[in-house]
Simulated scan of single mutants.
Amino acid sequence: MKNATVIIFYVILMVTIFLPAYLANKKRKQQQKEMIDNFKVGDKVVTSGGILGTITNVLSETLEIKVDKNAKITVLKTSISSVEKK
């Protein structure tokens, strides 16, 4: 009887610790997916490497970003860390 109580306590403790972390991670992944699905030409973006630019072309897996007057780079959609809509 005493062992069952201890096991139940540890199970409740584990759920209390890991459930909020799991739910927060799930929410963050959903927000990242929504951001990736909604890229538009003209959006200002910041890559995970800190590069600032404006989207000039949206492809299936990549984005073309204008970073200067005559400089464009191609990056993976998943490398974008934040977006500022135009």
Rank of each mutant, 00 (worst) to 15 (best):
K2L: 14
K2Y: 12
N3V: 09
N3I: 11
N3A: 14
N3G: 04
N3Y: 12
V6S: 11
I7H: 08
I8C: 06
I8M: 07
I8V: 10
I8S: 10
I8D: 06
F9G: 05
Y10A: 10
V11Q: 05
V11Y: 07
I12R: 11
I12T: 08
M14P: 00
M14Q: 06
V15E: 09
V15D: 05
I17G: 01
L19V: 12
Y22L: 14
K26F: 07
K26Y: 10
K27Q: 13
R28P: 00
R28W: 00
Q31S: 11
Q31P: 00
Q32P: 02
Q32R: 13
E34Y: 11
E34K: 14
I36R: 09
F39H: 06
K40Y: 08
V41C: 05
V41I: 15
G42D: 06
G42S: 06
G42M: 04
D43V: 08
D43F: 10
K44I: 05
K44E: 13
V46E: 13
V46P: 00
T47Q: 04
G49N: 11
G49V: 00
G50H: 06
G50N: 08
G50W: 09
I51P: 03
I51M: 11
G53T: 04
G53E: 09
T54Y: 02
I55Q: 01
I55V: 13
N57C: 08
V58P: 04
V58W: 11
L59P: 00
L59G: 07
S60W: 01
S60H: 09
L63V: 05
L63E: 03
L63A: 04
E64H: 07
I65N: 02
I65V: 15
K66R: 15
V67Q: 04
D68Y: 10
K69S: 12
K69V: 08
N70T: 07
N70K: 14
N70D: 15
N70F: 11
K72A: 03
I73V: 15
V75N: 00
L76G: 06
L76W: 02
K77E: 05
T78G: 09
T78Y: 06
T78R: 13
T78P: 01
S79L: 07
I80R: 00
I80N: 01
I80A: 04
S81K: 12
E84G: 02
K85M: 03
K85N: 13
